[in-house]
Write a protein that binds this DNA or RNA. Structure first.
Length: 289
DNA sequence: AGCTCTTCCTGAAAGC
DNA sequence: TGCTTTCAGGAAGAGC
C-alpha cells in the first residue's frame, strides 16, 4: 500500500516525464472517488502540467490552464492513492488493467492512467486558494522535520505512539508498514504513550523513521499488495521488512517470535522481547507481553 | 483529548 | 470441491 516511500517513488517517476506535457483528453470510468468529475472533464483538456509534488501521501500535479479567458487560473490535481491506487504512464494501446478509471491522453502520445481496485484513493481538482484548505492540516514531513519538531509532535501527546505515527496531522506520510518497521528498529513498543517516551527513545524513533523511509525510497518502495511505480515496476523494500507481516517468525535481532496485536485499530507487528510493553495501563489485548 | 466502531471497496484467504 | 464469511486497511466521522 502506498505510503511516503511509494508515493515519493511515483512522484520521481512522473517528474521525469510529465512537466511540460499538455493534457489532450480525459476519459473517466467509475468516478465515486473523484470529488467533482465534471470539473476534471472541463478543466483538464488543454491544461499543461507543471511541477509534480508530494505532500505526505498526497501527489499534486500543478496545472496551467491553457485558456487565457478569464483570470489565468492556477489549478492543481490532488491525488491520494489510498490502498491500491496506481498512477502509470504507458502507450495508449497498452493493455488496460482492470479497475482503471482515469485516462489522461498526453501530447507526447503517452497516456497517464489511474488504476485503483478498491477505490479508497481520491482525486480532486484544486483551484487557486483551495490548496491550503486541502493540505494545511497535514503534519510535517518526517524527512523534512527536525528532531526538535518531531519530539514536540510526539512527546507532548497522551496517545499511543503507533496512533501518533499513523496520524497524518502529527506527521505526514507514515502508514502501517513504516510505523511498525520504525518502531521495531527503535525498539519501542507500539502501545507506548507518546509523552512517556524518554529523550533517548524519541531520538531513536526519529532516526529509525528517517532511516527506514530513506532506505525504502532507495529500494523504490514496498510492493506488498498492488503497489507499482509510474512505470509499472514493483519495489523491493518488502524484502527488508523486519516485522511487518512476519507474525510467528523469528525476530532478526533476538530470535523471539514476532507478535501481532491490534493497536490504534490497526494490525501491529512487533517483537515482544526487543520492544517491551508498557508496564502499567495499556496492556496488549489478551494479556501477555 | 483519545479511544472504538463504522463506512467506503475488492479480492484473498479462511471456514464449513 | 465449492460456497460463504471474514479480513485487510487510509481516512473521516460519530459517539462515548
Amino acid at each position: 500500500m502506498p505510503e511516503l516511500p511509494e508515493v515519493e517513488t511515483v512522484v520521481r517517476g512522473l517528474r521525469a516525464v510529465l512537466p511540460g506535457r499538455r493534457i489532450l483528453e480525459v476519459r473517466l470510468g467509475k468516478t465515486d472517488f473523484i470529488e467533482n468529475p465534471a470539473a476534471l472533464e472541463e478543466n483538464l483538456p488543454g491544461a499543461r502540467i507543471g511541477a509534480v509534488k508530494r505532500y505526505g501521501k498526497f501527489l499534486l500535479l500543478e496545472l496551467e490552464s491553457a485558456s487565457t479567458d478569464e483570470a489565468a487560473r492556477e489549478l492543481a490535481l490532488l491525488i491520494h492513492l489510498g490502498m491500491t491506487g496506481q498512477l502509470v504512464t504507458c502507450p495508449p494501446d497498452a493493455r488496460v488493467a482492470p479497475h482503471t478509471h482515469v485516462f489522461l491522453a498526453l501530447d507526447d502520445g503517452k497516456e497517464l492512467r489511474y488504476t485503483d481496485i478498491r477505490r479508497f484513493g481520491s482525486m480532486q481538482l484544486l483551484a487557486d486558494g483551495a490548496r491550503e484548505k486541502a493540505l494545511g492540516s497535514l503534519g510535517a514531513d518526517p524527512l523534512e522535520m527536525t528532531e526538535e519538531q518531531f519530539a514536540a509532535a510526539i512527546g507532548s501527546r497522551r496517545a499511543r505512539v503507533k496512533a501518533l505515527l499513523l496520524d497524518q496531522h502529527v506527521v505526514s506520510g507514515i502508514g502501517n508498514i513504516y510505523a511498525d518497521e520504525s518502531l521495531w528498529r527503535a525498539r519501542i513498543h507500539p502501545m507506548r504513550i507518546g509523552a512517556t517516551l524518554k529523550r533517548d527513545e524519541i531520538h531513536r524513533l526519529y532516526r529509525a523513521v528517517r532511516d527506514v523511509l530513506n532506505e525504502a525510497i532507495r529500494l523504490r518502495g514496498s510492493s506488498v499488495s498492488d503497489y507499482v511505480d509510474s512505470s509499472g515496476q514493483r519495489g523491493e523494500f518488502q524484502l527488508r521488512h523486519r516485522v511487518y507481516q512476519r507474525e510467528g517468525k523469528k525476530c532478526f535481532r533476538c530470535g523471539a517470535k514476532i507478535r501481532r496485536a491490534i493497536v490504534a485499530g490497526r494490525s501491529s507487528h512487533f517483537c515482544p522481547s526487543c520492544q517491551r510493553a508498557p508496564r502499567t495501563r495499556p496492556q496488549v489485548a489478551g494479556g501477555g507481553l
